[in-house]
């Protein structure tokens, strides 16, 4: 037990003994995690935005004017049974007339003395089927139904969305990976500097007969503490920025950064792990 508490105590004291090098390391870890923290929220919200745009994609199916109510009911049942379909919305000729008036500002009965608008369905597809190949397949199946007059969807919108989503995804993942890698390198190097500054402690410990694990533990505890403190500072900073953004900048930008407490716990765990792994890697070099 004496050794256990000695190593724990040495780890905590090391943080104070390392002075400027330790403080520098904490700041570097903090900056790295701030970058990664913002990078994560930015990436998440960009991908969410793209997915949201995609969710608005609908397919409109116009039926023949002559379709009987039984045929319409049967067709509605067919749409409901399709695995690709998330929800089905029926628009009767009367509802279509109301919609027409809302969209164009004129009553269809003022232009014509009858309602030429057909019954239609608007279907929204499940996320995995919101792509060009699936939509074309579904449109082709539905077009062949006798009751269907026309199937319409924004093909060009889908082509553009697919093209840009890939670019956005690659960019977002690359930026996030770069930030994560940068934070690992920065953290590892700053911890290495802290240990380098106290290499004489390591050499003296070796001379008096310390085993490698005995030398290693205080440095690992110290590195983990640096990571923990750095990540707490990063969490506080990010919380402050998000608070300011969500409460004072809503008139300037229409964006709300919403994160749960789990996000901050994630930052603290990541920071502590970065410190632990970084110090473990760094000390290995000095124990050879």
């Amino acid at each position: 037990m004496t050794v256990f508490w000695f190593l724990i105590r040495e780890g905590f004291k090391g943080l104070i003994r390392s002075k400027y090098a330790g403080a520098f390391s904490v700041i570097i870890i903090s900056i790295s995690l701030i970058l990664v923290g913002f990078g994560y929220v930015g990436s998440r919200d960009t991908l969410f935005l793209v997915e949201n745009i995609r969710a608005q994609f609908d397919v409109d199916i116009f039926l023949h004017k002559t379709a009987s109510s039984e045929e319409i009911d049967n067709f509605a049942a067919l749409l409901d049974s399709m695995t690709e379909v998330r929800n089905v919305h029926y628009i009767s000729p009367e509802k279509a007339a109301v919609k027409f008036k809302k969209e164009f500002g004129e009553d269809i009965f003022d232009i014509l003395d009858y309602n030429p608008l057909p019954s239609s369905f608007t279907i929204n597809l499940k996320p995995i089927y919101r792509n060009l190949v699936s939509v074309e397949g579904i449109a082709s199946i539905l077009s062949n139904k006798p009751v269907v007059d026309e199937v319409k969807y924004r093909k060009q919108f889908l082509i553009l969305l697919e093209k840009y989503q890939r670019i956005v995804l690659i960019t977002v993942v690359s930026v996030f990976a770069f930030l994560a890698l940068l934070s690992i390198i920065l953290t590892s190097n700053s911890i290495k500097m802290t240990i380098f500054a106290r290499r004489e402690v390591i050499s003296t410990m070796k001379l008096v007969g310390a085993t490698n694990s005995f030398i290693r533990w205080p440095f690992i505890i110290e590195g983990t503490l640096q990571g923990f403190i750095g990540s707490c500072l990063a969490s506080l900073f990010i919380y402050g920025i998000f608070y300011f953004l969500n409460n004072y900048l809503q008139t300037v930008i229409e964006y709300k950064a919403i994160v749960s407490y789990r996000y901050y716990i994630g930052i603290v765990i990541s920071g502590s792990l970065l410190g632990l792994i970084g110090s473990r890697r760094a000390i290995r070099k000095f124990l050879k």
Partner: peptide, 16 residues
């Protein structure tokens, strides 16, 4: 390390 626990060392520059 176990050998070094049996050997005491003193240097010109003290190494404290």
């Amino acid at each position: 390390p176990y050998l070094r626990r049996k050997v005491g060392m003193v240097f010109q520059d003290f190494r404290l």
